[in-house]
Amino acid sequence: MIARRFAARKKLRPARRRPRTDPAMPTINIVFLLLLFFLLAGTLTAPGESEIDPARVGADAGERLPRPLLAITEDGTLSLDGRRIARAELAKAVADLAAPDGDETPVLYVLAARDLSGSVLVQILGEASAAGAATSLVVLNADGGQASP
């Protein structure tokens, strides 16, 4: 009986050595996760836009930085989608945003510095409205992402 078992054991193949996984794999996994996080949670910004600190209110959060985006710095400098424009060019730039068929009113998103003069903001919004765009003010949620009731 024992001899038979021994003979059967002898027929077994030797265990195959599994190829070792690359030691860099955990690192790659983490980097992939980081990549996914930035792809899903981040919004691409032009260099000037990331320096603007927008107004903080209890607005509903969850919006990504929309386009076309008119960024207004504290000193009133304008840039449309990262391209600096003069105040006098605003009306033409807004008119260019309109669809060729002209059916839909273009929406201009305004990212203004929180310390920008309110009068300047209202004047710029008025000029954009007069040029034919609906405007929307981009703000930051003061509650850190929690939508206030």
Binding site: A41, G42, T105, V110, S129, A134, T135, S136, L137, V138
Partner: peptide
């Protein structure tokens, strides 16, 4: 993506349009 993206809880306040706030710049040329 880490350098060029911005992760912030943005919100939007409509300022002009039907039934919303309407901006007018009193004193501006337009």
């Amino acid at each position: 993506f880490a350098l060029s993206s911005r992760i912030a809880p943005f919100g939007l306040i409509p300022v002009s349009g039907q039934g919303r706030a309407v901006a007018g710049a009193e004193g501006s040329e337009t």
